[in-house]
Computed example of a mutant assay.
Amino acid sequence: MISGEFNHKGELVFEIALVAADETDWPVQVILDTGFNDWLLINNEDAVNLDWLQKQKPRKAHTAAGTVFFTVYKGIVLMDGEEFIIPVLGGDEINNILLGVRWLQLKRLVADYSAGILTLD
């Protein structure tokens, strides 16, 4: 189980680690975005710095900002001591790393804002 916190905007924030190609762990804070239907969204520059391989041709997606093409990487995420190899979407205009709702297929989300409890189990 990993504990998270609600930030000043009320967003669901967790700390995970991204694993670089050289097996170095990079702890990062991520926002769980229930409107994002994939696994992970990251800035392309960060994915390149992690030396993650491009998995396939860019993927077209419809966002609130319109139609966008995302680069797809093969990424490794370390969460609660367990490694996950997942497809990661990358974009040039990404400011925050986002976890998507696909994680809820594997993890149970407990979010009780009034009690200050936020976990992924």
Score class of each variant (00 low, 15 high):
M1C: 04
M1A: 12
E5M: 11
N7S: 06
H8T: 13
K9P: 00
K9S: 11
G10S: 08
E11S: 13
V13T: 11
V13Q: 15
L18M: 14
V19C: 06
A20F: 00
W26A: 03
Q29N: 15
I31H: 01
I31R: 11
L32T: 06
T34V: 08
T34A: 06
F36G: 08
N37Q: 13
N37Y: 10
N37E: 14
L40H: 05
I42P: 01
N43L: 00
N43A: 13
N44V: 07
N44K: 13
N44P: 04
E45F: 01
A47L: 03
A47S: 00
N49G: 06
L50D: 01
W52I: 02
L53H: 09
Q54P: 01
Q56I: 03
Q56M: 11
Q56S: 14
K57V: 09
A61E: 13
F70S: 03
F70Q: 03
T71W: 07
T71G: 06
V72G: 09
V72K: 07
V72R: 11
V72M: 09
Y73R: 03
Y73P: 04
Y73M: 01
Y73T: 01
G75V: 01
I76Q: 14
V77K: 01
L78V: 02
M79L: 15
D80Q: 07
G81V: 09
E83V: 05
F84C: 04
I85E: 09
I86V: 15
V88Y: 04
L89C: 02
L89T: 01
G90L: 09
G91Q: 07
D92L: 14
E93T: 13
I94K: 09
N95V: 03
N96L: 10
L98K: 13
L98E: 08
L98D: 04
L99T: 08
G100K: 13
G100S: 13
V101K: 14
V101E: 07
V101L: 10
L104F: 02
L104D: 02
Q105A: 14
R108D: 14
R108W: 09
R108I: 15
D112N: 15
D112A: 12
D112H: 13
A115D: 14
A115T: 10
I117A: 07
I117T: 15
L118I: 11
L120D: 04
L120H: 06
D121C: 10
